[in-house]
Design a protein around this nucleic acid. Structure first.
Ligand SMILES: [Mn+2]
Ligand SMILES: [Mn+2]
Length: 215
RNA sequence: ACAU
DNA sequence: CCATGT
């Protein structure tokens, strides 16, 4: 059998646009990016030439395929999680308001960090602190790997640089938690990061490796 | 409704 | 069933 031909990948729109020499590298560049535009080519030269040109010259259009309204994002490639990633999760007993959080390396299953228990917190504050802790750890290690969280709330808070917690507004927390959240927000305000923050697709993949298994 |  | 959030 002829070995599978090597292909090169042009990413016009993604986390890190450019030409990649493997599907693994291409996937890391576009996985989870809304509206990513990319295509495979049989040679590096063809891929480089395409990168300099208009993706519209290469991507299928209504002439060759059915047309989806441009207002709708295309379906995301979420068939499986990226292996080189850091998964984070939090657990919170919302009757006692005791929270903890941790990070687990998806490639090895090893614990990257584990913090808590912290009284006076919420699930969402834990999910938020977990992501920011993970970003800081990846920055420290010089890794641009993606972070997975199952919390759309916390992902939104991190992307906005602020934990919009009702519990904090209503004074249902304590100084330690407020300090941790303030420190996390300050880290976000003072650091640039390139790690994609991706949704762990629990419905498709099962529980996040960092999950506490208490539900 | 969706995600925890 | 309870709670945290968009
Ligand atoms: Mn979670
Ligand atoms: Mn969990």
């Amino acid at each position: 059998m002829a070995r599978k031909a090597k292909r090169f990948y042009t990413v016009w729109k993604g986390w890190t646009p450019g030409v990649f020499d493997s599907w693994t590298a291409c996937e890391a560049s576009i996985h989870g990016y809304p509206g990513a535009i990319y295509k495979a080519f049989p040679s590096r030269a063809a891929a480089e030439a395409a990168y300099q040109a208009d993706p519209g010259d290469y991507i299928r259009t209504s002439e060759t395929s059915s047309r989806r309204p441009a207002s709708l994002p295309p379906p995301q490639e979420t068939s499986r999680p990226i292996v080189n990633s850091l998964c984070v999760d939090a657990a919170c007993d919302m009757t006692a308001r005791i929270m903890e959080y941790r990070g687990v390396w998806h490639h090895s299953g090893e614990t990257a960090f584990a913090k808590g228990p912290f009284p006076g917190a919420t699930n969402n504050l834990g999910e938020f602190l977990a992501i920011v802790h993970g970003l800081a750890m990846l920055a420290d290690l010089g890794l641009d790997w993606p972070i997975y969280s199952d919390s759309t709330t916390a992902i939104g808070w991190v992307e906005g640089g602020k934990a919009n917690s009702a519990a904090i507004k209503n004074g249902q927390t304590n100084e330690r938690i407020k300090n941790l959240v303030a420190r996390a927000e300050k880290w976000l305000a003072t650091h640039e990061y390139f790690n994609p923050i991706l949704k762990w697709e629990t419905k498709l993949w099962g529980e996040n490796p960092a999950d506490f298994g208490r539900k």
